Computed example of a mutant assay.
Amino acid sequence: MAMVSQVPFQLTGRYAERNKWENVNGPGDSRVTGQQIVEDEGLVGTLTDKVALITGVSSGMGPAIVRAMASTGATVFVTARNLEKAKEALGSLLDTRRVHLLYMDQTELATVRACAAEVRKQSGGKLNIMINNAAVMDTPQEKTKDGFELQFGTNHLSHFLLFYLLKDLLLASSTPSFHSRVVNVSSSGHRYSPVDLGNLGFEKGGYTGWGAYGQSKTANIYMANQIERLYGSQGLHGYSLSPGSFFSPNLQKYCQDEVEAAKDNERMMKYFVNYEQACATSIYGALSKDLEGRGGLYLEGASVAGPVPADSDIIEYGYSTWAFDREKEEKLWEVSKKMVGVE
């Protein structure tokens, strides 16, 4: 029997219909893949003059994002902490001379700076697309090498610094027909927690793995919204997104109980996608002509999402009540600059 959601549908766009609850049926169903979006956009082999940067490519949906992006003909710089693992995951993509693997440990900001310098050098000063994909999830309470709460530091601050060090390239590379884009991979998990500007590192207590994850994923949204506010009129746009749910042993290593529980939940299993489908919303944000010239959007299901209906569960489509908050976005931007030591 088809499972139909009892709440308003929150997605709009050419792929929205495929995400309706009466149409979803688990990994490999009719929901679009990243490669299908590249083909639908007519972009196979056409972006040979463009440069993209993708973080977190050694596991999960990262390699699928790279495969789809590389099929456009663009030059693609990709980052990983474990280079051998990334080489294995990317395989023959690294033989194409279009995909360039760089080292970056996002728990150590010195490596972010070194990676940004390498992108600047090897790209010839050009960068059109940045997809901030790397993340950790539901970790024990730990700190990065720079002393920041691990999930906030890895998921938000490292990407903030990477963007900040390369924003001049993104601005300079933007053209009237192809505006530059920054795509932040957030999560429906942003609905676990807003950003607490007075307790970013949980120095005042209250740490939970999911709460810290939620805060970091809300921070991803805030960063994208503020990019749009500051630079949208200059041809640089920011997007945030939820890729949906998928099985990723590396990302989910601290929440295996929840993963096992999901396997016994019919609604959850219908919502889950495979890696090729999970990467679709990142590719949509990076390439879709439907979004050209307009950012500050939260994307889901390779569609534009609206606010999540009240009393919905964590996998219902849409963004939380706190996902768009100009005052907090502006404050987090300034706090983040101080934390990573820019300006």
Results as ranks from 00 to 15, higher is better:
Lys145Ala: 15
Leu170Pro: 05
Gly235Met: 07
Leu93Pro: 03
Glu276Asp: 15
Val335Gln: 04
Met269His: 06
Ser245Asp: 13
Met137Arg: 01
Ser193Gly: 07
Trp21Asn: 10
Phe272Met: 15
Tyr213Leu: 05
Ala262Gly: 15
Thr12Trp: 07
Ala70His: 05
Ala262Asp: 14
Ala286Tyr: 01
Gly296Ile: 07
Pro27Phe: 07
Glu203Phe: 09
Phe272Pro: 00
Val99Tyr: 08
Glu300Gln: 15
Ala302Pro: 04
Met1Asn: 13
Thr208Val: 01
Tyr317His: 15
Ser59Cys: 12
Asn250Pro: 00
Val119Phe: 08
Asp290Met: 00
Ser71Asn: 11
Ile227Pro: 06
Pro176Asn: 00
His156Asn: 06
Tyr103His: 14
Arg31Lys: 09
Ser59Asn: 13
Leu169Ser: 08
Thr33Ile: 08
Thr12Lys: 15
Ser233Gln: 14
Met69Pro: 02
Gly73Lys: 09
Leu241Trp: 09
Asn250Arg: 12
Trp333His: 09
Val335Ala: 06
Ala110Trp: 00
Lys167Ile: 12
Asn184Glu: 12
Tyr15Gly: 05
Cys279Gly: 15
Glu329Ile: 09
Leu171Phe: 01
Cys279Glu: 14
Ser186Tyr: 05
Leu236Met: 09
Asp29Cys: 13
Lys85Phe: 00
Glu343Tyr: 10
Pro176Ser: 00
Ser58Trp: 02
Asn132Ala: 14
Tyr239Asn: 02
Ala219Gln: 05
Arg113Glu: 13
Ser248Lys: 02
His159Pro: 03
Leu109Gly: 01
Thr96Cys: 11
Lys145Tyr: 11
Ala135Gly: 14
Val335Lys: 11
Ser245Val: 14
Ala323Ser: 15
Pro63Gln: 08
Tyr254His: 14
Val308Phe: 00
Leu291Ser: 00
Pro243Leu: 08
Ala224Thr: 07
Leu94Val: 12
Asp29Ile: 10
Ile37Arg: 05
Ser180Thr: 00
Met1Val: 14
Leu287Phe: 12
Ser242Asn: 14
Met269Tyr: 06
Arg31Ala: 10
Asn132Lys: 01
Val76Glu: 08
Gly205Gln: 10
Gly301Trp: 03
Leu101His: 02
Glu17Ser: 15
Gly73Pro: 10
Thr79Leu: 06
Gln36Ser: 13
Lys337Ile: 06
Gln122Tyr: 03
Tyr231Trp: 13
Ser92Asn: 15
Ala280Leu: 04
Val38Pro: 03
Leu251Ala: 14
Asn225Cys: 12
Ile283Ala: 02
Gln151Phe: 09
Leu157Met: 07
Asn274His: 09
Gln151Ala: 11
Ser5His: 11
Val340Asp: 01
Ala116Gln: 02
Ala212Leu: 04
Val273Cys: 13
Asn265Gly: 08
Asn19Glu: 13
